[in-house]
Amino acid sequence: MELFYDGVTKDSINKENMRVACRGIVKKDGLYLMVHLKKTDIYTFPGGGIFEGESLDECAKREVLEETGIKVKALKLKISVTEYFIDSTWTNHYFTCEIDDENNVQDLTDEEKELELEVVWKSEEEIFDIFENNMTLHEQGPQVHKREFFGFINSL
């Protein structure tokens, strides 16, 4: 799926600054694992950038573990969402995941600590409400929520 912002068209895509990330959709007892960046009021599914030489599923597993302390098995790639901005192109790959071990420690980056990342479990209804009604405190928050919405509904 492709999302175009800032007036970008297929002919004006920025191919110099591209970022690839993976995200995990984890369900337990009818609730879904998310992270909430309290300082910006942005909700996302746990995930982040891929390392050189890392596979997509390895990236999803590592990022879920780092952000939440929960070890998962990446089961299936459900959708890839590419966002085109004037200055960059971002692709997020969404994997359904299953919990392997919940007794691990978070390994947050300084940026995640600064943004006050917290782990939350949300129902499907709460997630739809967040993505429909929460405009966040960050200028790009609505775009992030739109991307996460598409990742979520295509992973159900």
Rank of each mutant, 00 (worst) to 15 (best):
26 V>D: 03
148 E>D: 08
62 R>N: 10
132 E>G: 03
68 T>K: 11
125 E>K: 04
114 E>R: 08
3 L>F: 06
105 V>P: 00
92 N>G: 08
118 E>W: 07
19 R>D: 15
80 S>K: 15
152 F>D: 01
107 D>R: 02
127 I>G: 00
141 G>C: 08
57 D>H: 15
145 H>S: 09
84 Y>D: 05
146 K>L: 09
11 D>K: 09
149 F>W: 11
7 G>H: 02
119 V>K: 14
35 V>D: 07
122 K>M: 05
86 I>V: 15
143 Q>C: 14
147 R>W: 00
34 M>P: 02
79 I>D: 02
108 L>G: 03
151 G>Q: 04
59 C>H: 05
118 E>Q: 15
5 Y>I: 01
96 T>Q: 09
144 V>R: 04
18 M>S: 14
86 I>T: 08
57 D>F: 11
39 K>L: 01
130 I>H: 03
136 T>N: 14
11 D>G: 06
44 T>H: 09
125 E>Q: 11
94 Y>D: 00
146 K>M: 07
84 Y>R: 07
48 G>P: 01
145 H>G: 05
82 T>D: 06
76 K>R: 14
79 I>Y: 12
18 M>D: 13
57 D>A: 15
5 Y>N: 13
3 L>K: 15
7 G>M: 00
151 G>L: 13
156 L>Y: 00
83 E>A: 10
72 V>W: 06
28 K>M: 01
114 E>K: 14
19 R>M: 11
75 L>Y: 04
138 H>R: 10
113 K>P: 04
123 S>C: 10
112 E>F: 00
125 E>M: 03
31 L>C: 04
99 I>D: 03
124 E>G: 12
96 T>K: 10
144 V>H: 04
79 I>G: 06
116 E>W: 02
22 C>G: 00
110 D>A: 07
100 D>H: 08
34 M>F: 03
79 I>M: 05
124 E>M: 08
12 S>N: 12
1 M>L: 14
116 E>N: 11
56 L>T: 02
51 F>D: 13
75 L>G: 13
38 K>A: 05
80 S>Q: 15
41 D>W: 14
120 V>W: 01
30 G>T: 00
94 Y>W: 12
142 P>R: 13
138 H>C: 10
